[in-house]
């Protein structure tokens, strides 16, 4: 695989991860557990859509066929999306939402820290900007996990369950295929293995503070990077894409 093709796919994957999670969080708009948290979650959603736009726009430039950010968001089908399965999982209860967010934010926090020194200027600038946002998303979700875990008996078992349920989805974030290997070899992206221990240490620290017992190891989520999705993405896209597909030329 040549570097340009790998770069295009990599940008789309980062964009897809951010967009699908951004959409999930946007579903909570006006449905947050209370006013302040409603705004906090939709703020995170907006940050993720900002990141999506940067990645899709960059992807369009790399591809050079005139596709825009909207084309990537609205005119691709389910198998063309290569987001990890983690981000399409349902919001569930508030514990499920913050558990999913913590794993995502801690991973991307460590990725962006490395990626901001990429020799590719676009990726480096994207990572530097996104790192600031992600640092806050991480703090927000981690502090909630501590409070839920070390809160009431009910909040403890709910967050323990939520973390057990989502924990197996982390594996996919560290997967490597031809796209990653081409870019690692070209020195454009970090090898995720270099920060896996740091990722685990960050999470373990939160779990300890939250008095969460050791998380259950089960299956390993996989497939998203190949376009094989869980049952959920097929329900997200028709809602997300309905307006531009119904009125293809409309502007708003």
């Amino acid at each position: 695989m040549d570097v340009n093709e790998a770069l295009l796919k990599y940008c789309l994957r980062l964009g897809d991860d951010a967009m699908i999670l951004g959409h999930r969080l946007s579903e909570l708009c006006s449905k947050g557990p209370y006013l302040e948290e409603d705004i906090a979650l939709t703020n995170i959603s907006l940050d993720l859509f900002g990141q999506t736009r940067m990645m899709y726009t960059t992807a369009g430039e790399i591809e050079g066929k005139g596709r825009t950010e909207d084309d990537f968001a609205y005119k691709r089908l389910e198998p063309e999306f290569q987001n990890v399965l983690l981000v399409e999982q349902p919001n569930g209860n508030f514990g499920n939402t913050v558990a999913r967010q913590m794993i995502f934010s801690v991973f991307y926090y460590h990725l962006f820290k490395e990626l901001q020194t990429s020799s590719n200027e676009k990726l480096a600038a994207f990572a530097a900007k996104s790192l600031k946002e992600t640092t806050y998303h991480m703090r927000h979700s981690c502090e909630w996990i501590v409070r839920l875990g070390d809160g009431t008996e009910e909040s403890h078992w709910k967050i323990q369950d939520a973390l057990n349920d989502i924990w197996s989805y982390r594996h996919e974030l560290f997967e490597k295929d031809e796209v990653d290997e081409t870019l690692i070899e070209a020195g454009l992206i970090p090898d995720t293995v270099t920060f896996k221990a740091a990722f685990e240490a960050t999470i373990q620290d939160v779990l300890d503070r939250a008095t969460i017992e050791e998380l259950e190891e089960g299956w390993k989520a996989t497939g998203g990077r190949k376009g094989h999705h869980s049952e959920y993405l097929g329900h997200i896209l028709p809602i997300f894409q309905s307006i531009p597909r119904t009125y293809p030329e409309s502007k708003w």
């Binding site: 302040e36 703020n43 806050y136 927000h140 502090e143 909630w144």
Partner: peptide, 20 residues
């Protein structure tokens, strides 16, 4: 003002509500 369980979360809520 904001509602929050403790100071750290109050700070985060204030950041999200009043410094956007």
């Amino acid at each position: 003002n904001v509602h929050a369980a403790d100071g750290e979360l109050a700070l985060q809520n204030a950041r999200d509500l009043y410094t956007r």
